[in-house]
Design a protein around this nucleic acid. Structure first.
Lengths: 216, 216
DNA sequence: CCTAACTTACCAACCAGTTGGTTAAACCAA
DNA sequence: TTGGTTTAACCAACTGGTTGGTAAGTTAGG
């Protein structure tokens, strides 16, 4: 309720409501499918006000993107603070990634669509931020490799595999439920399950260690 | 050039050209962004002819989807014919998936976008086909588990992780190149590299086997 | 002369962005 | 304190270009 400098009661920060509504709509139907009127309506704001507060559709989209991704690196770094072995750090990264869609459910579909379109419209601003996230993960990988815990892999490919798996697993949840029905297998997984499965798979691999192997 | 039944020279199968053009445009900008006029133009066909041959935009999209995914299971099964150990089969699945975007470059972005939208518009027809692909992979996983080569994992999650990694790796190639520049790391990978990396990661995992581990 | 294949010309709905205002809070000079 | 001025916040109504879809006709093979 705190009034700012001057002006007539700025209707509980319209800008924030517009960005939230935009994230929702962009996530649901993508940039091309999103309607500015729909965003304005969901934000409970006149369309002209949307243009007044954040500019045109393209700028609105870019703002949603950057303001969302900016929250990721600090969260990742904070989560890693009290974790020490490389394997634990990697699992921590995955666990944290799995929590992101809880606090920010619209980020995953938006990014997936960006990937799908080859990032044709991704501004350099976003790439800088993606590189920042990559660096956090690649530091963990490098630490694991030099400490002798991890095998040496291409860090960029490994990072993309991790992020891709998590994004895909999270985003595919509704479809997975339907596919599971058709394939006749049960399906009940939490976000933590997804992170655990990915961590387990990527850390230990599928193969049974030779010594423990039991051929029948 | 072969003329079919009757009619006035059916302009070298307009329907096929329409579907090809549609796949292109849907892959580039998604269903909502795609313009029917653009698709018709790329197919070298009058817009009214597009409606005459394949019906409205929605039906056109559904047709592209099903006709594309239908090619996957036979290719997978054929590729698996001459491969025998579970590990080799799994790598074969990944290799084959990596070849798909070569023969059909539009499938990956289209599927990624479908995942992003939670499959809200995915017809049951598609789910049946996705379940068919899942069954091929899950058979390989099950075989590996019962033979003692693979650890037991949730087959659905593992399948989705594999497919997701491959789709994501392939689709993210252009963005990866740009991110690599910002992160200051080199970047040159072929589709085979992607399949090999994923196979290596998922089969053997990141962790160095205890016996071989060298702490410094 | 019938019918599949093809075309032109058109339309109504839609949609991003703008115009031309109103309102009231804040500021300021007397 | 007052009353005039400025300015941020807000809005209804409009604009003009776009777009999915169609109607009504043409062409030519059988």
């Amino acid at each position: 309720m705190a009034t700012r400098k001057k002006t007539k009661i700025p209707e509980a920060d319209a800008r924030a409501r517009i960005l939230a509504a935009a994230a929702e709509v962009f996530a649901d139907i993508g940039f091309a499918g999103a309607r500015v009127d729909e965003i304005a309506a969901r934000a409970g704001v006149n369309k002209a006000m949307l243009y007044y507060h954040v500019g045109d559709k393209e700028h609105l989209y870019a703002t949603v993107l950057t303001e969302t991704i900016d929250r990721v690196p600090p969260v990742l770094r904070k989560a890693l603070e009290n974790v020490h072995t490389p394997a634990e750090k990697l699992q921590c990264v995955l666990d944290t990634m799995a929590t992101l869609p809880t606090s920010n459910p619209h980020f995953v579909p938006i990014m997936l669509r960006e990937i799908a379109s080859g990032g044709a419209t991704l501004p350099d601003e976003m790439l800088v931020r993606m590189a920042a996230i990559f660096r956090v993960v690649s530091d963990v990988l490098a630490e694991g490799t030099t400490s002798g815990d991890f095998r040496a892999t291409d860090p960029l490919l490994t990072h993309v595999t991790l992020v891709g798996s998590m994004l895909f697993l999270v985003a595919s949840q509704p479809i997975r439920k339907r596919v599971a029905k058709f394939a006749g297998v049960p399906h009940t997984h939490t976000l933590e399950d997804l992170a655990r499965h990915t961590g387990n798979l990527v850390l230990h691999g599928l193969e049974v260690p030779k010594k423990r192997r039991v051929r029948k």
